[in-house]
Write a protein that binds this DNA or RNA. Structure first.
Lengths: 137, 137
DNA sequence: TTCTAGATTATAACTATTCTAAAGTAATAA
DNA sequence: TTATTACTTTAGAATAGTTATAATCTAGAA
């Protein structure tokens, strides 16, 4: 059973039709051994590099939103210029290098777990994001 | 010595000309006893409410950038739809209520201090932002 | 094979933000 | 004061990221 078979099942199981485009995006996002961060534009370029074919921006946006909804990827709040996404959906934190415009994972062992001693009535915590902005020293 | 005198001195001391618009924005941002969060659009509306006059969006953007540069306010990374700013420049963290689109301060006593046990060569930490996203429970 | 709901696409539209260049104003010096 | 100059404000144009639209296409079911 190769990767593409896996992706077909993965998509079907979560109620998404395994279209050519979605499979291609799965390949790009989930075939490598490492997780990574990307913006929509970067993803578009990676797709062209790796597959020599272009997927329309609209479809990339649609697919990224669908994958977000299914929890395949997550969004990272960095700044308001563009959205960043992460193929690592486990709870973890980030350095953001403002000069290189680059996100770097912070591993659990590198930071004390964040503990919030306050509750907001009627609300539950959806996510905890820690962003450590870096500048040249 | 009233507020506006203070703001004139404040602006002059940091090398910004105390123009009518900048003074007005100072009033709106720094006269109240509480700090608060705002987007550019919200600020524009508050100015109109409080002074019955409109300041052009370009000037508001300019001024907010100038004030950011001088450290009068700080920016908060919430999402990529728009920028949020905070008149409380001390290091503290936030809840973000995604349903109400509202930021809520987390006080120091409500969270353990964040400690990062990792250094990135050639970089220094510029800021540590913790954002706790909330949803209806 | 046919049908249909869902998917893809190019492109238009929209929103937040930045740029431009003309007109206005604060600070300085005479 | 007045004149000069550099900085500021402004409307509106331009740009970038994202979302909406509507026509075409396709996966999956009948």
């Amino acid at each position: 059973m190769d990767n593409s078979t896996n992706f077909i099942a993965k998509l079907r199981n979560s109620g998404l039709r395994p279209t050519k485009q979605r499979l291609k995006i799965c390949e790009v996002l989930f075939s490598g051994k490492n997780t990574f961060h990307f913006s929509i534009n970067e993803l578009s370029k990676i797709i062209i590099q790796k597959t020599n074919e272009k997927i329309s921006l609209a479809t990339i946006y649609n697919t990224v939103h669908a994958f977000l909804g299914k929890g395949y990827i997550k969004q990272i709040a960095v700044n308001s210029e563009q959205s960043y996404y992460d193929t690592n959906v486990s709870e973890h934190h980030h350095f953001y290098d403002e000069d290189k415009n680059q996100l770097i994972d912070i591993h659990d062992s590198e930071v004390e777990p964040v503990k919030i001693n306050r509750k907001i009535p009627g609300k539950k915590i959806k996510s905890i994001e820690l962003l450590v902005k870096l500048q040249n020293s």
